[in-house]
Amino acid sequence: MIISSGCAPKNPLPSNNSYSSYKTDVPFITPRSELCASTSIEMVSSYWQILTPYVPRLSLSELDERTLIPAKGGTVQIELIAAARADGLLVYPLEPTFDALFSELSAHHPVIVLVNRSYSWYPLWHYAPVTGYDVKAQTILMHFSDIPNEAVPIETFAALWERSGNWGVVLLPPGQLPESATAEKFLRSAYDLEKIGMTNEAITAYKSALSRWADDIPTLIALGNAYYNSHQITEAEQIYRKILLIDSKHPFALNNLADILCHTNKSDEALKLLDQVVTDNIKIHALIEATRKEIHSGCTPFIKK
């Protein structure tokens, strides 16, 4: 008999049975009061430290100092994300579904989830890494609290997880790709690294994205720009030229390559590139004209770094 109630999870359990059991060997750390966010990051980062050449940038106590808000007695999601990034990890927001969760677990990627252990009218928010799934016992394995790989019945997990809107993040060294990623969402995560000044990590992430989505133009532009902004001009030029092989009229690639050529004393070629731009977008048009003006007034050579 099916009992329907208002408290039933809105996000149904995985409907198809194509999933098998998965388990990742994530090192376990005993929970400490108010510090589940930094403990969760530390567990996942030590996991990657064992498997890959990744070296965490922060110690556990530094993670503590970066995540706890004393008056709130816990950590907000954005700060978990920001601290993980400062630790040298790429943070990919999980699609809020069991499919995405299982897809990551199948690739042996632990996922940090936010759950509410209580009801919405008396919330007890808690972060914990999900480490596996047992299809036979219908349990989710997670370093929930005191017991490593505690088996939580999937219905219970679904109820707790649903209260956070199925919030979860995949933390990975920039050379790894989330199993469930889309090119655009991954690019946003990688670009976030660049935004806070971690350009080398961002470049690594763009490159690994290209290993899966070789001709993805936004990712190529991001990589070209990251090279440009870190004064690796030859590499930037190669990437912009590669984009033009895929899409010979791409206005951003034409523009950015023209800028490089102008700064390297090839103004004629630069102007020819700009002449190829066809656009009715006002902003792109303004950008092209600004570059044209710069070329006519003469560009100064790049300062060698």
């Binding site: 929970p31 009061s33 108010e34 510090l35 589940c36 966010a37 808000i69 709130k72 007695g73 816990g74 950590t75 907000v76 999601q77 954005i78 978990l80 936010l114 509410n116 252990r117 209580s118 919330p123 007890l124 928010w125 808690h126 972060y127 609290s145 005191d146 956070s164």
Partner: peptide, 13 residues
């Protein structure tokens, strides 16, 4: 939104 953001905390009540 700091006042309304949930803060993941601890091992229960």
């Amino acid at each position: 939104q700091i006042d309304t953001l949930p803060a993941g905390a601890d091992a229960g009540m």
